[in-house]
């Protein structure tokens, strides 16, 4: 009897430990970054160009570059992803071909990001001769987050009750109008949540942009989508490995990491808030 209770307690202790250790690791990580990075944060840091071989000045071009790349990725991936999801879940006749496409999408989600980077280098930079620029980087990041957006959109479309579709079609409204006016508006919150999570992912990735868009240093801000840009994750990488003054730039590295993490977590937080707000408002 007591042996059984002991086993039960031991088991609970193990699972509890597992959960808490994850929370503790994340907490420790965030606190460490915050403590080390907060000192570097200032208005100057957020609004100025790097100076003196990046040992002074700010990271504004990198923040701006990450914004451009992420916005570009979303502009490319959102229409493509939503359209694919509509086709997969609303139009396509479920069968072997569709199953293969779905497996393909899932595999795409599991492809390491460096592979996307090399793919982008091969296709956009070299073959299509865009060069290393915002366009190439945004396209590559767009492909990276496509599976996330397709998955979230399909999920959101499926959650719209079948009875809404029937009601609309039963009124003599075409399938396309039904999707446009009934299904999509009701799926939109879910689609947006998924897309925002995609934004977080795109903003934080280094590997896909290091060959396709990111520059070590740019003296000027980009003037077109065919210019190279600095980007936060790549800037961290550069400061930590490629600089001549690694020791001098250390506070700036922490500062940049802090900005990046805050940005990604902030975007995720927005998604969580939107989702919980919509769940409360949902009435069917």
């Amino acid at each position: 009897m007591r042996w059984r209770y002991f086993k039960q307690h031991a088991f609970f202790a193990i699972v509890r430990l597992a959960a808490f250790s994850i929370a503790a690791a994340i907490g420790a990580f965030l606190v460490y970054i915050l403590v080390n990075g907060i000192g570097a944060i200032s208005w100057e840091f957020l609004s100025e160009h790097p100076r003196e071989s990046m040992t002074k000045g700010g990271i504004m071009p990198a923040i701006l570059g990450t914004f451009y790349l992420t916005a570009g990725a979303i502009i490319i991936a959102l229409p493509l992803g939503v359209a694919s999801a509509i086709y997969l879940s609303e139009y396509a006749k479920q069968g072997p071909v569709i199953r293969i496409i779905r497996v393909g999408v899932n595999c795409l989600a599991g492809v390491p990001s460096i592979v996307f980077g090399l793919f982008g280098l091969g296709l956009f930079v070299v073959f299509l001769q865009f060069g290393s620029c915002i366009l190439s980087g945004a396209l590559t990041l767009g492909f990276l987050i496509l599976p996330t957006i397709i998955g979230a959109s399909e999920e959101a479309l499926k959650s719209v009750p079948q009875t809404f579709r029937e009601a609309s079609l039963g009124l003599g409204v075409s399938k396309w109008q039904t999707i446009l006016r009934i299904v999509l508006p009701n799926a939109l919150p879910g689609i947006l949540t998924g897309s925002i999570l995609g934004i977080g992912r795109a903003a934080g990735e280094t590997a896909p942009i290091m060959f396709t868009a990111a520059a070590f240093f740019t003296a000027k801000l980009p003037s077109s989508i065919f210019d190279e840009v600095m980007a936060l994750p790549y800037h961290v990488y550069v400061l930590a490995t490629a600089g001549t003054y690694i020791e001098e730039t250390r506070p700036l590295q922490y500062g940049t990491v802090l900005v990046l993490v805050a940005l990604v977590l902030g975007v995720d937080l927005i998604a969580i808030i939107i989702r919980s707000y919509i769940r409360k408002k949902k009435r069917w």
Binding site: T163, E166, A167, G172
Partner: peptide, 17 residues
């Protein structure tokens, strides 16, 4: 679609939008 405009339908469970 034309047929369904002429022949309407009311379903088992009320399904307002």
């Amino acid at each position: 679609v034309d047929i369904r405009r002429r022949i309407g339908m009311v379903f088992q469970k009320p399904n307002p939008f």
